[in-house]
Amino acid sequence: MKSNKLTPNSNLRWESSRMILPEWRKQWLQRQEAQTWQEPPELDDQMIEEYMQMIHDGMAYTWLFDVTYWQDGQFHTATGYVARFRDAPPQVWLQVGGAVLTIPVEHIQAVESQS
């Protein structure tokens, strides 16, 4: 059902009456983004090698993985099967539902097998 100004927990009653300049909004969102910006992960070589070994093994047996990765200043976790591993540049192609997520190896924070 379409929400209206009386819908519980909706903020529509205030959103419909406010005046915000687009330039103000853009700057506020940029500042908010900058405040929550996180640096990319810095994994040591041994940890990366361990994760890559796990991914290679998992590809053979179509294991389901939880991959935590960094993108645009934020960490995300996606669950899927590894569809492909590319060497140059090193990338993991994770099949998540009907889509393929391309994750650079240097942006991987953690890999966990669900299998």
Partner: peptide, 12 residues
């Protein structure tokens, strides 16, 4: 009476 929450992500 106003049950609406303070909504930080309202501008997103």
């Amino acid at each position: 009476i106003d049950p609406s929450p303070v909504t930080p992500d309202t501008h997103q």
